[in-house]
C-alpha cells in the first residue's frame, strides 16, 4: 500500500469524457494529496460534478486512469470497489437523503450496509455523527422533507462521514445557504477535516469557502485542469477566466473579508 504522504491519494491521468459530441474532459490530470482540502472551481458546464462522479465510479470515463488509494477505480472488481466505497463518503448537492428514512436512519444506512453492528451501537454511533455535524437530537427523528436546506446538507454530511472515511467528496456544500449558514458549514468542514484527518474534495462556487478552508484550488477550464495551487498562486495565473474569477468584484470582496479576519 502506498501510504506515504507524498503519494497522491487521488490520481487522475489523461481523463477523457464526452456526452455524445459534447466533450467535457479531454486529457485531464489531477492529483489530490492526503489530508488536504482541495477546492474544484470552474464555470457552469465545465464538468466539475462529472469529474466527481467519475472519481467515485458513478460515471465511466471514455479513456484515462483514475486511481484512488493507489487502486484503479475503473478496473476494480466488485469486491475491490466495495472496499473503496467503504473508504470514502460522498455528499451530493442538497444532501440526497433517502426521503423514506429519518435523519438518523439515513446515517445508519451505510453502517447497516457495510458493517454488522448491534442495533444499539449503530444507533448510538449514528447519533454521535448527527450531533457532530451540529444537528440537534430533535432533528434525528425527523424526515428529510421536514428539514430546512441547511439541515439537509448537514445531515448529508453526517451520512458521508458515517464510517469515518478517508476521503469526503462534497458537491457544492454551501450552495443555497445564507452567508452565516455557509460560513458555519465551512467551519464544520474544516473542524472535522482536522479531527478525523479527512481528505476533502470540494466542488464549490463559493469564493468565501475557497478562501476560508481550501489548502489548494484546482481550476477546471478548457476541458482540463487549467491550474492547481494555493489561493495566492491562483491570483497570479495569467488566464482570462481565472483572472476574472479571482479578481472579479465578488472575489475582491471575499479577499477583503479574509484580510479583516
Amino acid at each position: 500500500m502506498n501510504d506515504t504522504a507524498t503519494d497522491p491519494i487521488i490520481k487522475v491521468r489523461g481523463l477523457v469524457k464526452s456526452f455524445g459530441t459534447h466533450i467535457v474532459h479531454d486529457g485531464l490530470d489531477l492529483d489530490v494529496r492526503r489530508g488536504e482540502i482541495i477546492g474544484i472551481v470552474g464555470g457552469s458546464g465545465t464538468g466539475k460534478s462529472v469529474l466527481l462522479q467519475q472519481i467515485v465510479g458513478l460515471l465511466k470515463p471514455d479513456a484515462g486512469q483514475i486511481e484512488v488509494f493507489g487502486e484503479n477505480v475503473r478496473d476494480s472488481s466488485p469486491e475491490e470497489y466495495r472496499d473503496l466505497r467503504r473508504r470514502w463518503g460522498v455528499m451530493f448537492q442538497d444532501g440526497a437523503l433517502f426521503s423514506s428514512l429519518t435523519v438518523r436512519q439515513n446515517v445508519e444506512a451505510p453502517m447497516r450496509e457495510q458493517l454488522d453492528l448491534p442495533d444499539d451501537l449503530r444507533k448510538t454511533l449514528a447519533g454521535i455523527k448527527v450531533r457532530m455535524v451540529g444537528l440537534t437530537d430533535v432533528a434525528q427523528t425527523k424526515f428529510p422533507s421536514e428539514l430546512s436546506g441547511g439541515m439537509r446538507k448537514r445531515a448529508g454530511f453526517a451520512r458521508a462521514i458515517a464510517l469515518d472515511p478517508e476521503i469526503v467528496f462534497l458537491d457544492e456544500p454551501t450552495a443555497g445557504l445564507d452567508p452565516i449558514g455557509a460560513a458555519a458549514f465551512d467551519t464544520l468542514i474544516g473542524q472535522l477535516q482536522a479531527t478525523l484527518g479527512l481528505t476533502v474534495f470540494l466542488v464549490t462556487h463559493d469564493l468565501d469557502s475557497l478562501h476560508a478552508i481550501c489548502d489548494r484550488i484546482a481550476v477546471l477550464a478548457e476541458k482540463k485542469v487549467l491550474a492547481v495551487g494555493t489561493m495566492a498562486e491562483m491570483l497570479e495565473v495569467d488566464h482570462p477566466w481565472v483572472q476574472e474569477y479571482f479578481h472579479g468584484p465578488r472575489a475582491r470582496a471575499a479577499l477583503a473579508t479574509k484580510g479583516e479576519r
Binding site: 448510538t124 447519533g127 454521535i128 455523527k129 450531533r131 457532530m132 482536522a194 479531527t195 478525523l196 484527518g197
Partner: peptide
C-alpha cells in the same frame, strides 16, 4: 490528534 477527536466526540455524546 486523538485528544482532539476525543474532545469532538465528547461534545457529541448522547445525553
Amino acid at each position: 490528534t486523538q485528544r482532539q477527536l476525543l474532545d469532538t466526540v465528547r461534545a457529541s455524546m448522547p445525553t
